[in-house]
């Protein structure tokens, strides 16, 4: 950092933001912490119940299911997205004609409204005559019960998420690869190692910091998953795809059990915080 000044005006610059954030996130979080100790009926806190809402968490089989679904979902999508992202980045990171156009096209999925992606998914996974099933019919003479079978509905959700976010991993990792100087590659080729070796011994270690940032950002976003599942499966069939956010949303805003829903949101917050803390040193180092 260059010469830093220390004047009063800095507070004029930064305080509005700090106050805003305190008012709009820290205050609601405390409010919700308070609520989690109350029994709430029809949206009105009636009486103090101490830790009862948290005790309920332990015996809630639907919650356990939603946690399982969420963790599995996060683990699978993030892994697949990053592996595919690296492979695609390697594929594009060579002299390619029309590279900038191709890259621009790959940006599109990232910015698609997630809830709309889910609805398009409904038409694509449509079982009687949707494009995917008619393709499978003509090829194998069989179709897949995409949305009516618990496992397949799950696969459909995963596929949509992977479709939307692999391009993000790809773009960032490609940027990472391209920031490596060409001399490194040239030198590596003179040593005439195989391409795989160059990738493993040179490129991979050097893009590792970038991959970790991508991993972190995807982890954070994946835990928030709500929109696509809301529109594609609504958590069903049964509770096969009911992720944590959807379960909490229903508990709070469909059944108006605000107390228990607040306790649930704290559980999610705790899980995310634990995972983020594993990376905390690295995040801090980026903003040195």
């Amino acid at each position: 950092m260059s010469a830093l000044r220390s004047r009063k005006i800095k507070y004029f610059f930064i305080l509005p933001s700090i106050i805003w954030v305190l008012a709009f996130t820290i205050f609601p979080l405390f409010y919700s912490l308070g609520l989690s100790f109350f029994k709430v009926r029809l949206g009105k806190p009636t009486h103090f119940v101490g830790l009862a809402n948290f005790e309920r968490i332990i015996n809630d089989y639907k919650l356990v299911n939603s946690l399982k679904v969420t963790l599995l979902y996060v683990a699978i999508t993030v892994t697949v997205q990053i592996v595919l992202g690296i492979l695609l980045a390697l594929l594009f990171h060579q002299e390619t004609k029309g590279k900038s156009i191709l890259r621009a096209l790959m940006i599109l999925p990232i910015f698609c409204t997630p809830v709309a992606v889910g609805y398009l998914g409904l038409t694509i996974f449509y079982e009687e005559g949707g494009p995917l099933n008619s393709f499978l019919m003509s090829l194998f003479g069989a179709k897949i019960p995409w949305l009516s079978h618990p496992t397949w509905a799950w696969v459909a959700v995963l596929l949509l998420d992977i479709w939307q976010w692999t391009p993000f991993c790809f773009l960032v990792i490609l940027a990472g690869l391209q920031s490596l100087s060409e001399e490194i590659y040239d030198a590596a080729y003179i040593d005439s190692s195989s391409e795989w070796e160059i990738f493993r011994k040179i490129a991979l270690p050097m893009i590792q910091p970038v991959v970790i940032i991508v991993l972190l950002l995807r982890l954070i976003e994946s835990f928030k998953i709500f929109d696509v599942i809301f529109s594609l499966t609504g958590g069903g069939p049964g509770t096969a795809t009911e992720v944590f956010s959807l379960y909490t949303y229903r508990t709070g805003l469909r059944f108006f059990d605000f107390g228990y829903a607040s306790a649930l949101s704290y559980l999610l917050l705790a899980i995310v915080m634990i995972i983020i803390n594993l990376f905390f040193k690295r995040i801090r180092a980026v903003y040195e």
């Binding site: 409010y31 949206g43 944590f244 956010s245 605000f258």
Partner: peptide, 15 residues
Amino acid sequence: QRVLPPVAVVIPFFL
């Protein structure tokens, strides 16, 4: 603030 899952604050916001 970006880490915060929106569902964690949607209920207090609603109230």
